[in-house]
Structures are given as C-alpha cells and as structure tokens.
C-alpha cells in the first residue's frame, strides 16, 4: 500500500440550522490508501453515503478538509469538482443509474468522451464479464448485468478512485458476488483504489480495511489479514 490518495481531516457536514440541524458527518478523519479495497460499514443514517459523496466531489463539506493527493477539494467550486470527477473518480450506485437510451457499449463509451485515454468499451465490459452483451439496452439486462455495466462505465476512464454506494444492495447474493468479483478484478488489474459502502457485514471480509461508521463518526477501523475472495462470501 502506498501513500493515501484521499485524506479527510475533521470533516463535518451539517444539514439545516439551529435546533433542527442534522450532523451527518461529525469530525471524520479518514484516509484511502492507494490500491486498497476499503469497506465502509454502518447502519442507515451513520453518514457513510454522505462521506462517499463528499469524497467523490458530489457534495461539499461544511467543515474540515478533504484532499485528493495534494489538492484541496473542500475549496473547489462546482466546475473544479466536475473536473475532479471527470478525471479521477468512478462511481457505482445501488440503482446502477445507467442511461436507458444507450446500449451497454454506449453507456461505457459515454465516459470515453471525457478523458484522454479511455479504455475501449469492449475491454471494460470484458473485464466485468459482459463481453457478450455489448449491444443490449439496460432494459434487456438483469440487475446484476446492469450493475456490471455501471462498473465498466466507471472504470473505462481509468479512474484513480472507484466509489461504490451499496453496489449489491438491489441484487441477490449470487449476482451480488459477480459484481463484487468485478470490483476485485478491477482493483487487481488496474490498481484502482476502491471504496465500497455497504450495510452488509459479510462483504467487509473482501476488503483490505474496514471502517465502521456510527452517528457521523468513525467508530472503528480494522485491517483484514487476508482479503476473502467474493466467491467465498455468502449472505
């Protein structure tokens, strides 16, 4: 493992004001190491999605700092955050968020326009095991397949970070494992740093590190001695 790609210090995110204010993040110190797989665990409302959104440049913190390498994201305006997402971040969401009017290949090709040396869509889709479904529309694919297209789309721009918010949340265990295997494969072959949000404790075993969140704070951080391959996980 190398130096941290992402560094957050004293990160705060407060929604609302005064008595009704909600502290979604309450002084979070957090690092994402280069090339690691990190699993963020926690119950609903613990602040893990908020943390991921801030790290991914979708949301701005109300306090503290977050740095990508030596660049301070917390001071960026919308245009700079867009550029950051464009050049460095890949997202995977629970509900895939594919563009329904584009085929698998075209969904992946979408990001090809954004960066200089994108991965060919065929290669990205091959990496997630979908080499045979290039020209299917989202409506013609299963949930697991759609999620793997989303992963392929996220990695096609060769991002430094892959941020996944409940990537298996809407899937059964079998297809969920396929999706997780795709994430591991990406991490192995490209060295992409991967952060996975989940409320499913079993998944934690696939990570290098597990961060447990509670009430907007980091409650516990632990290292796994060995990453368990997704095929061994069951829930």
């Amino acid at each position: 493992m190398g130096a941290p790609v992402l560094t957050a210090r004293g990160l705060e995110k407060v929604y609302g004001e005064g008595a009704t204010a909600v502290r979604a993040l309450d002084g979070v110190d957090f690092d994402l190491e280069r090339g690691e797989i990190l699993v963020l665990l926690g119950p609903s409302g613990s602040g893990k999605s908020t943390l991921l959104n801030v790290l991914g440049g979708l949301d701005a913190p109300t306090g503290g700092t977050v740095r990508y390498l030596d660049h301070d994201l917390s001071r960026d305006d919308d245009d700079a955050l867009t550029r950051y997402r464009r050049e460095h971040v890949g997202f995977v969401f629970q509900f895939y968020n594919l563009v329904p009017s584009l085929t698998a290949r075209e969904n992946v090709a979408l990001v090809g326009d954004l960066v200089d040396k994108p991965m060919p869509p065929e290669e990205a889709l091959g990496m997630v095991g979908l080499g045979g479904r290039l020209d299917h529309f989202p409506s013609q694919m299963s949930g697991g397949e759609q999620q793997r297209v989303a992963i392929a789309r996220a990695i096609a721009k060769r991002p430094d970070l892959l941020l996944c918010d409940e990537p298996t949340g809407a899937l059964d265990a079998k297809t969920g494992r396929l999706v997780l295997e795709a994430l591991v494969e990406v991490n192995r072959r490209l060295g992409t740093s991967v952060a996975v949000i989940t409320h499913n404790a079993v998944i934690a075993d696939m990570g290098d590190r597990v961060v447990q969140m509670k009430d907007g704070r980091i409650a516990e951080t632990r290292h796994n001695a060995r990453r368990r391959p997704p095929a061994e996980l069951d829930w």
């Binding site: 991914g56 979708l58 919308d78 245009d79 867009t82 550029r83 997402r85 464009r86 050049e87 971040v89 997202f91 968020n97 594919l98 563009v99 329904p100 009017s101 979408l110 990001v111 954004l114 789309r153 721009k157």
Partner: peptide, 14 residues
C-alpha cells in the same frame, strides 16, 4: 432527471 444527473456524476459539465 436520473439520466441527466448520472451524466453530471460521470463528470459531464452542466
């Protein structure tokens, strides 16, 4: 909205 926001998240500008 979802498709358009997805584009924004991917890094497309406004």
């Amino acid at each position: 909205a979802r498709s358009l926001v997805t584009l924004r998240v991917l890094g497309y500008t406004r």
